[in-house]
Design a protein around this nucleic acid. Structure first.
Length: 789
DNA sequence: TGGGTTGGACTTTTT
DNA sequence: GTCCAACCCA
């Protein structure tokens, strides 16, 4: 792998600029330079992991501004996450100094769509109803509650028609810009024939609530552009230059949106890496990046291939793995870094041993016992898991040994119940017609207003064609409620009136108002009286919420911010190991990365493969690629022979991805606690790696005395016959691992053939006649497992 | 109405 | 094994 010769790849026209490089261009490599300086026309920046993509992107924006190609307001730069948007802003500021005004159109797809939609809200609707500029943005929770109501309204059984599933379906449609009216006939019939109808009802309902969900933000924006060419034209003309981050993650709606906006000036620069597309399950279309050159004729493709993050060993291992995928654009990552450590591979008896071992390794790093890497701080270490349930084992273990850790991901700040409750209070105060907010908090804290009371309120509201809050007032006035409920609701309505008046008073402090709302409503008291261990944390969150309010002029502005932008505060609290999912790790890097749980079924994930076949498997492989390429200096892959899943112990095979790692970049470690160790264990792993017969090798080396390993070997031998099988349970009740016709061994009866299976009981034809025995007392014939008695 | 109990689900989750 | 939601009884 030779470094690229600069002079050959920089076009002549740009060498003139190169002669007197602006300071912000210094230090860019040739490819990055090309990506920054190719300003006109469509550009696809294929940026491999760790190749300085963000730097190229931000420098490109700085360059546009420095050359006066566009004013900040004429550049559209879209990202997927608020974090990415923030980082870009910060870096542009750093490049240009304080002199340049902010970039109003640098943000997430969603936040930019909101800005556009607010200006044209009235144009979104169905003739009778249309959106108003102050529309609210519903999150997933609200969405599901709404769908549930609609399903109930059709008298459908929620068991058979789960709201979550419908939400998923609708999201999928919106991701493809399919509104109820242009939904293909076949799709309408989804959800047992009710899909199209419920979707239409849902959109109607959203409109009447003056609300949109996340998917609508994109879809409405595209519809707006398509239906109103004049509106589209003004936006097309405004955005002279368009930049898109993580293009491989765009869905159809985002793609359409970009194409529409880019039509006028055609200056669109998309940055992405097809090998890091891991959000297919959320509607992302790798096809968008693969098709870029066809979609935008005359596109120039710039490949960023010099990696500044990882060692050659890590890069080679990752490259070897991803090579197994088909239909890639193809990149060859290279680096000038020193060879470094091979990627380590280790197997463990079970998930607890795996967690224990990783804990010990981390302590060894801390104690400086891994000298080859120099000093490694806990902040430098990450554990990346496939599924969040894997985190438990590490949390338990690290808690026990007192190793500081932080879990990244998990519920976001604004998804927490207490935050959503508080927000619902604020929402109702700002917009008294927000029925969803009303429903959420009318009985939180408990006011003795249950289903019955709510129905009364709803009936009153419907009778007068008014929002629920007014319905509540009427129900109180007309005395339709009794006892405690009546008194409490009267209080609630009265309090709301005061809060609402205060919210309209520009002179009053909205922070104080927020505090008063939470106090007077009894919401704070509810948590103060709560004895559960997480109550204090929730009160802290509420404090944090109120504190965050200080940065805004009013409640209204704050509400928008929280709906779209507010991240969880990942506060720095000393040195901690990071635990997160592989998805959560995208875009991050750590000197040392542990990748546990590389077992078939878990990773690659069985469901991903079942539901999406090869496509699913390839996405899993890309996830593995993302995982390995997060490591700067050391990656440690591990797997466990047994893992507890849903309370059941399951045994599993090492991941097929392990077989795909190129051997020369892998160092196989011997797990502690395996007798003999050394050569034998290494041979067994090497055998797994090369796909050779582990059984014979292990027998030769005579090191496998541990029952778990024997079971694993037995499975390995078995896999030669029916390809691979899903992990099977090893407990007594697990007759699932046998099928009729299998040969099995029994301690007393010898070898026989299974002629029947009922639950955990097998009927086996032995030489001595047929017997009915528990599955736990036999093993597959020919395996060297110990025969149980 | 509310709280306790039971039944079913359970991969990932940028907005 | 654990979490949430629906259901049932006081």
């Amino acid at each position: 792998m030779e470094p690229i010769d600069d002079s050959d790849t920089v076009p002549l026209s740009q060498r003139a600029i190169a002669a007197r490089p602006a300071p912000y261009l210094e230090g860019l490599n040739a490819a990055q330079r090309a990506a920054v300086e190719t300003l006109e026309g469509p550009v696809l920046m294929l940026a491999g992991a760790g190749t300085g993509k963000t730097r190229a992107l931000t420098t490109r924006i700085a360059h546009l501004l420095m050359l006066n190609k566009a004013r900040p307001g004429q550049i559209l730069a879209v990202t997927f996450t608020n974090k990415a948007a923030r980082e870009m802003k910060d870096r542009i500021t750093a490049l240009l100094g304080e002199t340049v005004e902010g970039m109003p159109w640098l943000g997430t797809f969603h936040s930019i769509c909101v800005k556009i939609l607010r200006r044209h809200a009235e144009l979104i609707g169905n003739g009778e109803l249309h959106l108003k500029p102050a529309f609210t943005i519903l999150d997933t929770d609200d969405q599901i509650r709404l769908l549930k109501q609609l399903i109930q309204a059709e008298n459908l059984d929620e068991k058979r028609w789960p709201p979550r599933q419908l939400a998923h379906l609708i999201d999928g449609w919106k991701n493809r810009c399919l509104s109820p009216s242009n939904l293909p006939r076949g799709e309408k019939a989804a959800f047992d024939g009710w899909g199209g109808r419920l979707y239409a009802a849902y959109q109607e309902r959203l409109l009447s609530l003056n609300a949109v969900d996340f998917g609508d933000l994109l879809m409405h924006c595209v519809t707006l552009f398509q239906a109103h060419p004049d509106v589209l034209k003004t936006w097309q003309e405004r955005f002279r230059y368009i930049l898109v981050d993580e293009y491989q993650d765009t869905n159809v709606a985002q793609y359409m949106w970009l194409r529409l906006l880019a039509q006028a000036h055609r200056n669109i620069c998309c940055v992405g890496d097809d090998d890091q597309s891991i959000y297919g399950w959320r509607g992302a279309e790798v096809g968008n990046i693969l098709r870029f050159e066809q979609d935008f004729p005359g596109a120039q493709v710039v490949r960023l291939e010099q990696n500044y993050r990882s060692t050659p060993q890590i890069l080679s291992a990752a490259s070897g793995l991803i090579a197994a995928n088909s239909g890639r654009l193809g990149k060859t990552l290279w680096t000038e870094a020193e060879a470094g450590e091979k990627v380590r591979l280790i197997g463990h008896w079970d998930s607890e041993a795996e967690a224990r071992w990783i804990g010990e390794e981390i302590e060894a790093f801390q104690g400086g016992h891994r000298a080859s890497l120099g000093k490694v701080s806990l902040d430098d270490i990450a554990i990346l898991v496939r599924a969040s349930h894997q985190m438990r084992a590490f949390e338990d273990r690290f808690m026990t040994i007192g190793l500081p850790y932080r879990v990244i991901g998990g519920p976001r700040f604004y998804e927490r119940a207490e935050i959503r409750d508080a927000m619902a209070y604020f929402r109702l105060v700002v917009s008294p017609s927000d029925d969803l907010a009303f429903e959420r908090i009318v009985n939180t804290p408990k006011r003795g207003l249950g289903d019955k009371a709510l129905q009364t309120i709803q009936a009153a509201a419907r009778r007068h064609g008014m929002p629920l809050l007014d319905g509540a007032r009427i129900a109180v006035e007309e005395g339709q409620l009794t006892g405690k409920g009546l008194a409490n609701l009267r209080d609630f309505v009265a309090s709301h009136g005061r809060w609402h008046a205060d919210a309209l008073d520009a002179g009053a402090s909205h922070v104080e108002l927020a505090e008063r709302i939470l106090d007077e409503s009894g919401y704070t008291a509810m948590w103060q009286n709560d004895k559960s261990p997480d109550a204090p944390g929730r009160l802290d969150n509420l404090k944090e919420l109120v504190k965050a309010l200080e940065e805004f002029d009013n409640l209204q502005g704050f509400l928008e911010h929280v709906a779209l932008v507010m991240d969880r505060d990942e506060g720095e609290a000393g040195e901690e190991v990071s635990i997160m999912t592989l998805h959560g790790a995208k875009g991050l890097e750590f000197p040392v990365v542990f990748l546990p749980g590389w077992e078939d079924g878990l990773f690659p994930n069985q469901r991903a493969m079942d539901e999406n076949g090869t496509r699913g498997l390839e996405e899993e492989r890309r996830l593995a690629y993302v995982g390995i390429t997060r490591a700067e200096r050391l990656a440690v892959i591990s797997f466990a022979g047994n893992r507890r899943l849903y309370g059941q112990w399951q045994s599993s095979m090492p991941s097929r991805f392990i077989d795909e790692l190129p051997e020369e970049y892998i160092e196989v470690l011997t797990p502690p606690g395996l007798y003999g160790g050394g050569y034998g264990a290494a041979m067994a792993f090497a055998g797994a790696n090369a796909g050779t017969d582990m059984h014979d090798r292990a027998a030769q080396a005579d090191v496998y005395n541990s029952p778990g390993w024997k079971r694993m070997q037995a499975r390995a031998a078995e896999r030669k016959a029916p390809a691979r099988r899903a992990p099977v349970t090893i407990d007594a009740e697990a007759s699932a691992q046998f099928s009729v016709g299998d040969r099995v061994s029994h301690a007393k009866f010898g070898e026989g053939e299974i002629i029947g299976i009922a639950e955990d009981t097998l009927t086996v034809q032995f030489a001595a006649g047929f017997k009915t025995i528990k599955a736990a007392y036999v093993i597959p014939a020919g395996s060297d497992q110990d025969v149980p008695f």
